[in-house]
Design a protein around this nucleic acid. Structure first.
Length: 874
DNA sequence: GGGGGCACGC
DNA sequence: GACGTACGTGCCCCCC
C-alpha cells in the first residue's frame, strides 16, 4: 500500500480549537474546549486521510534558534492563557489513546520538525499532508506535499497545493517565504520592510522573484518611496526572510518508519472521553470490552399483583412509548423498594386493585420521575396517585437547569446512576421506535424504578447543598400537581368558530396568492424563502439588505424596509401573517382538539427553561396571537367549558420591573411603583429630564424599549434592532438609563461580580442558573454571560412569584369550595374558567392572592378581565 | 429526519 | 483569532 504521512502542527491546532470553541469545561471544572476541538480534528483527519504514518509536532520551550538571529522574534506574542496551557497534558493523553506519536525538540519549532520530516518523506517517495492553522506552512507545498490550513472553526480546511498557492497569491510556495520577508508578520513579530504589505510584496515578487534578486535590482523598482524603503531596510528583509524560512534540516533521529499509525485504543479513548465528559465523541466509540455496561436488575414480572407486592415499595415508574402522556397507552409500570422490584404490564397494572390501593394511599410515600406525567397517565385510568413526595426529574432540573438530559438514563447518570440503558437502545428512535419483547423492556422499566428509589437520597442531598429543599417541596412539586390538573382539565375550543375562520382565511390566502403571483409575473411558492428571494431580489431587482447563511433574508424587518419600493412586498407581509394564522393556529389547533370533548390538552414543560419559566407544547398555548387584531380573533375560539361560564384572565402588571425595583433597591424605581406611575412614562421623564406633559409618544416608545431590554437582557445590538437606531446610540441609551437609576446600575455590577465569583446566579426563591460563559475571554460569550447574570434573577424571580401565586390560588379555590378552574399560565398571566355565579368571588380573590403571593418592597399589581371568550377577557 | 428561515408569545 | 446577539415552540421548505 502506498504510504501516506500526516504531519500535524500540534500547538497551532490546539490554539485554533481553543479559540474556535466556547470555553467548555466538564463538571469537575477542567477546561476542555481545546482538547475537544483537537479530538474532532483528529477524527476528521483519520477519517479523511486514512494515514499510514502520522506525527504531531509541538513547539518546545520559549526560545529557538531563531532568537539568535532576532531576539525579539515572537516578542509580541501574548502569554498562552492558562485555560489553554492546562489542556496540553490532556492533548498528549488524547494522542496516546489515539495511538499517534508526538514529538518536540528543544530549540526548534513544530514547523521545523514538520519541514524536516516532509522533506525526508518526499525523498523516500511518501505522500505528505500537513495540518496547521498557520499559513506560513504553505511554503512546504509541493507535488508530493499538500498543506491543509484551517479556514474557520476547526474542521473547515483549505488545501494548499502548489497550484492553489499560485492561484491564490500568484506565487510559488517557496516565494511565500520571500513574501513574508518583505511584508513581515505581526503575530510572530517579524519586521519585514515598513510600508510593504501583501499586495506590494506579491507585485514585487512577480517582477523580481526573490528577496535577494529584488535587492540586487532594487534600482528597477518603480516608485521612489518604495525604492527608498527597500534600500534602507534590505537587511531587515533578508533577516525577515530568514526568520520565516522553515528549517528542513533539523537534526532528527526519527525515521519515517517509526511514525506508523497503529490506530486508536478504543478502551483508552473511551476512558479519556468519559473523564472529560465528551458525550458526543463517546457515542462514536465502540468499546471492545463492555459496550454499554448495564447494571443487572433483579425483578419479577407480575401478572396478578397483590398487596404484598407493594408493601416495601417507595418508587414507581410508568413507561409510555409516546411523549404525549395525555394519549399514550401505558406500556408497563415498575414498582420498587427495599431491594424488591416488580414489573406489571400496563393493562395489568391499571386494572389491579392492589396497585390502585397502594398508588392512592397518601401515606405510602413515593418517588417518581416526572410527577405531572405520572399523575396524568394514571388518572386516565381512574387512579389518583397520592403520596408523591419526590420527583427526580424535577429535582434534577432545579439542581442544574442547563443539563437538558434526554431521557431517564441521562438524568440518572447526572446523579451517579450509570447502569441504565438509554431509551433509544431499548426502543429505537424515529420510525423504528417500538416495544421490544416484554422481558427486555420489563427489565428496562424495572431498572428505572430501582434506580429511582436510590436517586431519591442522592438528589435530596444535592438539593440541600443548593439550599433548594424548600423550592422543591413548597414550590415545584406542588406546582407539578396543579399543572397536572390544568392539563387534564384542558381548554374547550369552539371548533365551529375555528372552522369558520379557517374558511375565511383560506379564501383570503387564495386571493392574496393570486395577487402576488400576478405582481411577480410568475407562479412560485411564497412560503419558500428561497423562491421568494429569487423573485424579489433577482426578478424584481429589489436591493438585498441582509443575507442569511443560505441566501437572501426575507424576514419581516427586511420586507418592511422594502415595502415602499414595490407593491408586492406588503402583500407578501400580509400573506405571511395570514398564512401563519392559518397553519399554526387554525389548522394547528383543530389538529389537536379532541373531537369528542372539544378540548385541548397542552403539556407544560416544567423542567426546561433556563430561567424557571414554563413552556408549553402540543400545542403551545403560550403564544396565541394578541398583538394584531386579526390574530387576536383566534382567542374567540377559546371558551369556557359550560355556556354560562366566563373566561377570566388576570395578569401581573410589569412584574419583572417590579422585581428589578425590589432586588436592586433603586429608590427612584421603587418610588415610581409606589406612586402607581405608568412606568414607561416615568422612565421617559427620568431619562429625558422632562415633565410628564413633555413626554412625547416617541420618548415613551424608546423608554419602553429600554425597559423591555432590561427585562429580557437584550444587548445594545438587540435594542438597536428594536428601535431602528445605531448600536452606538442604543448603548448610549442603556448608559443613560443606568445613570438615571443608580441602584439598578449598582445591582447589575454586583450581580455580574457575584456570578463571576460563584459561577451562578439565583432568584428570590433560590432557583439557580450556572453561567460558565461569564469568564470567557470571547467578548460575545462573556457579554452574553453578563446579560444572563443580570436578567435571570429578574425573569426567574418573576417566574417564582407566579408559580407561588398558582399554588396559593389553587389552595384558596379549594378552601372556598369554588368550582372555577385554573386553565392556563402565560408567564405573567393566569386564565380561569369561571361559572357566572363565582365571578364576584373570583374578582375579589384572584387579584388579591396574586398580589400577595410574595411580598416585595414595591406593590405587585394585577389587572383582570373576563368575558364569554378568551378574546373578550381583555 | 433534520436543519434553516420565519413568526408567534412574553 | 473568534462571530453572535432575550427564550421557547411550531410551521414550512428543502436537502440528504
Amino acid at each position: 500500500m502506498e504510504k501516506k504521512l500526516v504531519l500535524i502542527d500540534g500547538n497551532s491546532i490546539a490554539y485554533r480549537a481553543f479559540f474556535a470553541l466556547p470555553l467548555l469545561s466538564n463538571s469537575k471544572g477542567v477546561h476542555t474546549n481545546a482538547v475537544y476541538g483537537f479530538a474532532m480534528m483528529l477524527n476528521k483527519i483519520v477519517k479523511d486521510e486514512q494515514p499510514t504514518h502520522i506525527l504531531v509536532a509541538f513547539d518546545a520551550g520559549k526560545t529557538t534558534f531563531r532568537h539568535e538571529t532576532f531576539k525579539e522574534y515572537k516578542g509580541t506574542r501574548q502569554k498562552t492563557p492558562p485555560e489553554l496551557s492546562e489542556q496540553f497534558s490532556y492533548v498528549r493523553e488524547l494522542l496516546k489513546a489515539y495511538g499517534i506519536p508526538y514529538f518536540e525538540l528543544e530549540n526548534y519549532e513544530a514547523d521545523d520538525i514538520i519541514g524536516t520530516l516532509s522533506l525526508k518523506a518526499e525523498q523516500e517517495g511518501v505522500m505528505v499532508k500537513v495540518y496547521s492553522g498557520d499559513k506560513d506552512l504553505t511554503q512546504l507545498a509541493t507535488e508530493k506535499t499538500t498543506v491543509c490550513i484551517t479556514r474557520k472553526g476547526i474542521t473547515d480546511i483549505e488545501e494548499y497545493t502548489p497550484e492553489h498557492v499560485l492561484e491564490k497569491y500568484g506565487l510559488t510556495p517557496l516565494q511565500i517565504i520571500d513574501m513574508k520577508g518583505l511584508m513581515g508578520d505581526a503575530s510572530d513579530n517579524i519586521p519585514g520592510v515598513p510600508g510593504v504589505g501583501e499586495k506590494t510584496a506579491i507585485k514585487l515578487l512577480k517582477q523580481f522573484h526573490s528577496v535577494e534578486q529584488l535587492i540586487e535590482s532594487v534600482e528597477q523598482v518603480s516608485g521612489a518611496k518604495l525604492k527608498e524603503k527597500l534600500t534602507e531596510h534590505k537587511d531587515m528583509a533578508v533577516m525577515s526572510k530568514q526568520l520565516a524560512t522553515i528549517l528542513r534540516t533539523v537534526p532528527l533521529d526519527l525515521a519515517i518508519e517509526r511514525l506508523v499509525y497503529k490506530g486508536a485504543d478504543d478502551d483508552e479513548l473511551y476512558d479519556l472521553y468519559r473523564d472529560l465528559e465528551f458525550k458526543t465523541l463517546l457515542e462514536g466509540i465502540q468499546r471492545t470490552g463492555e459496550p454499554e455496561q448495564v447494571t443487572d436488575v433483579s425483578f419479577t414480572i407480575v401478572t396478578e399483583p397483590e398487596a404484598a407486592h407493594f408493601k416495601q415499595a417507595d418508587a414507581v415508574y410508568v413507561e409510555m412509548m409516546d411523549v404525549n402522556y395525555h394519549k399514550a397507552p401505558i406500556a408497563g409500570i415498575s414498582v420498587s423498594g427495599d431491594g424488591q422490584t416488580i414489573f406489571m404490564p400496563g393493562e395489568t397494572a391499571v386494572s389491579s386493585l392492589a396497585f390502585k390501593e397502594w398508588a392512592e394511599n397518601q401515606s405510602a410515600r413515593k418517588t417518581v420521575f416526572d410527577a405531572k406525567r405520572t399523575v396524568i397517565a394514571l388518572r386516565r385510568h381512574g387512579i389518583e396517585i397520592a403520596g408523591v413526595d419526590f420527583d427526580v426529574f424535577l429535582a434534577s432540573y432545579l439542581i442544574n437547569p442547563s443539563e437538558s438530559p434526554e431521557d431517564f438514563a441521562a438524568v440518572a447518570k447526572l446523579h451517579g446512576e450509570t447502569g441504565i440503558a438509554s431509551d433509544e437502545t431499548i426502543y429505537g428512535k424515529g420510525a423504528k421506535r417500538a416495544l421490544p419483547a416484554e422481558e427486555t423492556y420489563a427489565k428496562h422499566v424495572s431498572a428505572k424504578a430501582e434506580a429511582l428509589s436510590r436517586l431519591d437520597e442522592t438528589c435530596r442531598h444535592e438539593l440541600s447543598e443548593n439550599s433548594q429543599n424548600e423550592l422543591f417541596d413548597e414550590l415545584e412539586l406542588p406546582l407539578a400537581l396543579i399543572l397536572a390538573d390544568m392539563e387534564s382539565e384542558g381548554v374547550r375550543v369552539d371548533i365551529n368558530r375555528l372552522n369558520e375562520m379557517g374558511t375565511e382565511l383560506k379564501k383570503r390566502l387564495a386571493e392574496m396568492e393570486k395577487t402576488i403571483h400576478t405582481l411577480a409575473g410568475t407562479e412560485f411558492n411564497i412560503n419558500s424563502p428561497k423562491q421568494l428571494g429569487v423573485i424579489l431580489f433577482e426578478k424584481l431587482g429589489l436591493p438585498s439588505l441582509k443575507k442569511t447563511k443560505t441566501g437572501y433574508s426575507t424576514s419581516a424587518d427586511v420586507l418592511e424596509k422594502l415595502a415602499p419600493s414595490h407593491e408586492i412586498v406588503q402583500h407578501i407581509l400580509d400573506y405571511r401573517q395570514i398564512g401563519k394564522l392559518q397553519s399554526t393556529y387554525i389548522e394547528g389547533l383543530l389538529k389537536v382538539a379532541d373531537p369528542d370533548t372539544r378540548k385541548i390538552h397542552t403539556r407544560f414543560n416544567q423542567a426546561l427553561t433556563q430561567t424557571g419559566r414554563l413552556s408549553s407544547t402540543d400545542p403551545n398555548l403560550q403564544n396565541i396571537p394578541i398583538r394584531l387584531e386579526e390574530g387576536r380573533k383566534i382567542r374567540q375560539a377559546f371558551i369556557p367549558e359550560k355556556g354560562d361560564s366566563v373566561m377570566f384572565a388576570a395578569d401581573y402588571s410589569q412584574i419583572e420591573l417590579r422585581v428589578l425595583a425590589h432586588i436592586s433597591r433603586d429608590e427612584k424605581l421603587i418610588d415610581a411603583f409606589k406612586q402607581g406611575l405608568d412606568i414607561h412614562t416615568a422612565t421617559a421623564m427620568e431619562v429625558f429630564h422632562v415633565e410628564e406633559s413633555g413626554v412625547t409618544s416617541n420618548m415613551r416608545r424608546q423608554a419602553k424599549a429600554v425597559n423591555f431590554g432590561i427585562v429580557y437582557g437584550i444587548s445594545d445590538y438587540g435594542l438597536s434592532q428594536n428601535l431602528g437606531i445605531t448600536r452606538k446610540d442604543a448603548a448610549q441609551f442603556i448608559d443613560r438609563y443606568l445613570n438615571t437609576y443608580p441602584g439598578v446600575k449598582e445591582y447589575m455590577d454586583t450581580i455580574i461580580r457575584e456570578a463571576k465569583e460563584k459561577g451562578y446566579v439565583t432568584t428570590l426563591l433560590n432557583r439557580r442558573r450556572y453561567i460558565p460563559e461569564i469568564t470567557s475571554r470571547n467578548f460575545n460569550l462573556r457579554s452574553f454571560g453578563e446579560r444572563t447574570a443580570m436578567n435571570t434573577p429578574i425573569q426567574g424571580s418573576a417566574a417564582d412569584i407566579i408559580k407561588k401565586a398558582m399554588i396559593d390560588v389553587a389552595e384558596r379555590l379549594e378552601k372556598e369550595q369554588l368550582t372555577s378552574k385554573l386553565l392556563l399560565q402565560v408567564h405573567d398571566e393566569l386564565i380561569f374558567d369561571v361559572p357566572k355565579e363565582e365571578i364576584d368571588q373570583m374578582e375579589r380573590i384572584v387579584p388579591d392572592v396574586m398580589e400577595h403571593a410574595f411580598e416585595l418592597d414595591v406593590p405587585l399589581k394585577v389587572d383582570y378581565s373576563f368575558g364569554p371568550t378568551w378574546y373578550d377577557a381583555k
